[in-house]
C-alpha cells in the first residue's frame, strides 16, 4: 500500500514537474498579436522584426497601415522580446529608437503600461499589432507569430 502510494506520489511529482516545465515554456514564449479583423494570417520572424523596428509600415500583402504597440520600457517582457526578435539589448534599442524617431524615419510604436492594456489596444485598433506572453486571448485578437524564448 505504501509502495503504491509512493509510486502515485512519485508519478504525480514527475507529472507536476513536466506540467510545470511545459507551463513555464508556454508562458515564456511570446505571442505577436493582431486584431481578429486584420487580413493577416501569419507573420515570419523577419517581418515581425521589421514591423517592430519600423522598417515595414503596411502589413505584408495588405494596404493596412501598421499601428504597433509596445510595452513600457521597464517591462521585463519588452527586453526579452527585443533580445529574441532582433538581438537588441535595452541600451542599443534605445539608441536605435532615438535615431529612428528623430531621423525622419517615422513614428515609434505606441507605449502601453502592461499586457492587459496592450491586448485592449490591439482589440480596439483594426491595424494594431503588439506582443504578450502566450496566454488565452479574447476572440477579437489573434496570434500571427509565436516567438520562442527557450532556444
Amino acid at each position: 500500500m505504501k509502495i503504491a502510494n509512493l509510486c502515485k506520489i512519485t508519478s504525480l511529482f514527475f507529472m507536476l514537474i513536466l506540467m510545470a516545465g511545459t507551463g513555464n515554456r508556454a508562458l515564456a514564449d511570446i505571442a505577436v498579436i493582431v486584431n481578429a479583423n486584420n487580413p493577416l494570417a501569419t507573420l515570419t520572424q523577419k517581418d515581425a522584426g521589421k514591423i517592430f523596428m519600423g522598417k515595414l509600415r503596411l502589413f505584408p500583402g495588405t494596404n493596412l497601415e501598421i499601428h504597433a504597440f509596445d510595452l513600457a520600457t521597464d517591462h521585463s517582457l519588452r527586453h526579452t522580446f527585443y533580445e529574441k526578435l532582433v538581438s537588441m539589448n535595452a541600451s542599443r534599442l534605445a539608441r536605435y529608437r532615438a535615431s529612428y524617431l528623430f531621423g525622419g524615419k517615422g513614428r515609434l510604436p505606441e507605449s502601453v503600461a502592461d499586457e492587459s492594456s496592450l491586448i485592449y489596444s490591439v482589440n480596439t485598433h483594426i491595424n494594431g499589432i503588439g506582443y504578450v506572453s502566450l496566454r488565452p486571448l479574447p476572440d477579437n485578437v489573434k496570434v500571427v507569430f509565436i516567438l520562442k524564448t527557450d532556444d
Binding site: A94, S99, K105
Partner: peptide, 12 residues
C-alpha cells in the same frame, strides 16, 4: 549618422 547628427543620444 546624417539624419541624427544633432541627436547625441543616438550614437556612442
Amino acid at each position: 549618422y546624417s539624419e541624427t547628427l544633432e541627436v547625441g543620444y543616438s550614437y556612442i
